[in-house]
């Protein structure tokens, strides 16, 4: 039954297109090259280095960020964001597991539904739009980006790429690409469904904070806070 529906739909599509018989992916790709494939997509022009652009756009999305000079500073930076009762969900990421988390911090490597603050590591970022890129995987539960009140993301400046297309080039060589869920995130969750008034914290985090690691940050040390 299902298969015949499939065949019927494909037959109708081919009839509509006046396409006789099977056409190959290679044919389609050749036609794509001819039609537009050789030209890149127009994109938002921007000046300066990628990190500065990222930070500036990220702030425009109501995201906040600060610069760290080494990985070891992460626990302290996280602690500074914690409320008195909060416990921390930390992604089971090699970078984070090796850290010295203070014993008084309740650190959890799962993604519990009621966690107040979660820490993950970004796989890349997009300078054009000020967007974080997180790939789901054993080291990166998707829920950490969605469930907490505050989401803290570690971002290495060398993974800040100009645009989404560059992110594909950067991630593609490393299978399994694409992951189950590739999340691109620009600021905290928001809605405008009540009278077109933008309100943060619709379903996801109310606060999104980036800890920047690496060079090229120039004079800036924090923003949007």
């Amino acid at each position: 039954m299902m298969n015949s529906t499939r065949e019927r739909i494909l037959a109708k599509v081919r009839r509509g297109l006046e396409a006789s018989g099977q056409r190959s992916i290679a044919m389609a790709h050749a036609a794509r090259e001819l039609a537009y494939g050789e030209m890149p997509s127009p994109r938002q022009p921007w000046k300066g280095n990628a990190t500065e652009r990222f930070c500036q756009r990220f702030e425009a999305w109501a995201g906040t960020w600060q610069r760290l000079s080494r990985v070891g500073e992460i626990p302290m930076a996280v602690q500074a964001l914690l409320g008195p009762e909060d416990f921390v969900s930390v992604a089971p990421h090699s970078l984070l597991r090796e850290l010295d988390w203070p014993s008084q911090m309740a650190v959890n490597h799962e993604a519990p539904a009621d966690c107040r603050l979660a820490v993950s590591v970004a796989d890349a970022a997009i300078a054009e739009t000020g967007t974080l890129v997180l790939c789901s995987g054993p080291q990166s539960p998707t829920g950490l980006a969605l469930l907490p009140e505050t989401h803290v993301v570690i971002l290495r400046t060398e993974t800040i790429l100009p645009d989404m297309e560059a992110v594909w080039r950067h991630l593609q060589p490393e299978p399994p690409f694409p992951p189950r869920s590739l999340n691109t995130i620009s600021g905290p969750s928001r809605t405008a469904d009540v009278e077109q008034t933008i309100q943060l914290g619709a379903h996801g985090p109310r606060r999104l904070h980036v800890l920047l690691l690496g060079e090229h940050i120039g004079e800036m040390s924090a923003g949007g806070i």
């Binding site: 938002q44 756009r57 999305w61 997009i126 054009e128 739009t129 967007t131 694409p178 869920s181 590739l182 999340n183 691109t184 995130i185 620009s186 600021g187 905290p188 969750s189 928001r190 996801g204």
Partner: peptide
Amino acid sequence: DTSTYTTF
């Protein structure tokens, strides 16, 4: 210029 969440 992008939605807050764009997911693949």
